[in-house]
C-alpha cells in the first residue's frame, strides 16, 4: 500500500523529522522570548519567566498538587468504570431490561456531565469529593456503553463452541463473554482517560484549594499570566503522559487483536 521511495530510508526519514521538530521548537521558543522582550509581555509572558516559575513550583508543592489531581482522576475512574462495567455486563445479557431502559440512559448520556459540576459542588462541597464524583459520572457512561456493546458483540459461535465442549453457563461467562467484552472495556478506559482528566480539571477550576486546576484558577484570578501559562504547561505534560500510558497499556493488553483495519 505504501509507496516505496527509492531515495529515502525509513530510519533516515524519522531522524530528519525529529531534528526538524527540535528545530521548530527551539525557533518558536526563541521567537517568543525575543518578541516578548521587544514588544512587552504583559499578556504573553516569557518562556524564561515560565521556566523560572515552574522551577519554583517544583521545589514547593507541585508534586502535591499533581498528586491530588491524579488521585481525583484515578479515584473517579475506578468508581465510574467499575459501576459502568458491572451495569454493562448485567444489561448486556438481559435484552428486555436494556431495551426498556435505553432511552433513559441515552438521554442521561447526552447531557454533558461536566456541566453539572456546579450542582455537584453544591452537594458535596469543595474538596475532592465532587471532583471524584464528576470524573466517575463522566467515565460511567463511557464504560457502560462500551461494556454493553462488548457483551452484545460476542460471537455466538464462540459461546456455542465452548458449550459443546462441555462448558457450564458460568464457564461460558468467565471464559468467553467476559474476556470478549474486555477488549471493549479496555478501549473504553483508554477513551475515558482524557474525559476524566478534563472533568477533574473542571471541578478544580470551579472550586478547589488543591490540584493543578486550582493553581490555574488562582493564577487567573490574580491575572498572573506567567503562573497561568506555567499551569497550562503542567497540564499539557500530565495530559500527554496519561494519554501515552493509556495508549501503551491498551496496545499491550489487546495485543491479540488482528492488525488489519
Amino acid at each position: 500500500m505504501a509507496e516505496a521511495r527509492a531515495d529515502a530510508t525509513p530510519g533516515g526519514d524519522a531522524h530528519a523529522t525529529l531534528l526538524a521538530q527540535a528545530a521548530v521548537a527551539i525557533v518558536l521558543i526563541v521567537a517568543w522570548e525575543s518578541a516578548g522582550r521587544a514588544f512587552g509581555h504583559a499578556w504573553t509572558s516569557l518562556p524564561s519567566l515560565i521556566a523560572v516559575r515552574l522551577g519554583e513550583w517544583a521545589a514547593s508543592g507541585l508534586a502535591r498538587h499533581a498528586a491530588v489531581t491524579l488521585f481525583e482522576i484515578t479515584g473517579g475512574l475506578a468508581l465510574g468504570a467499575s459501576s459502568g462495567i458491572v451495569l454493562g455486563l448485567v444489561l448486556g445479557r438481559t435484552v428486555t431490561l436494556s431495551v426498556v431502559l435505553r432511552p433513559f440512559i441515552v438521554g442521561l448520556y447526552s447531557v454533558p456531565i461536566v456541566t453539572l459540576a456546579p450542582l455537584l459542588i453544591l452537594w458535596f462541597g469543595l474538596d475532592m469529593m465532587p471532583k471524584i464524583v464528576l470524573v466517575a459520572l463522566s467515565t460511567f457512561f463511557l464504560l457502560f456503553f462500551n461494556t454493553f456493546a462488548g457483551v452484545q458483540a460476542i460471537d455466538r459461535d464462540l459461546v456455542e463452541a465452548l458449550r459443546i465442549m462441555g462448558a457450564s453457563p458460568r464457564e461460558e461467562f468467565a471464559r468467553v463473554i467476559l474476556p470478549g467484552a474486555v477488549a471493549w472495556i479496555v478501549s473504553g478506559l483508554k477513551i475515558a482517560v482524557p474525559y476524566a482528566f478534563a472533568a477533574a480539571v473542571t471541578g478544580e477550576l470551579l472550586a478547589a484549594r488543591d490540584g493543578i486546576g486550582s493553581l490555574l484558577a488562582a493564577a487567573a484570578a490574580q491575572f498572573d499570566m506567567t503562573g497561568l501559562y506555567a499551569a497550562l504547561v503542567v497540564l499539557m505534560a500530565l495530559g500527554t503522559l496519561a494519554s501515552a500510558l493509556a495508549t501503551r497499556a491498551e496496545r499491550w493488553l489487546l495485543r491479540w487483536r488482528p492488525a488489519a483495519q
Partner: peptide, 10 residues
C-alpha cells in the same frame, strides 16, 4: 492532550 477547559480562564 491539554483539556480544552483549561484554556477557558486564559
Amino acid at each position: 492532550c491539554l483539556p480544552k477547559v483549561a484554556l477557558a480562564p486564559l
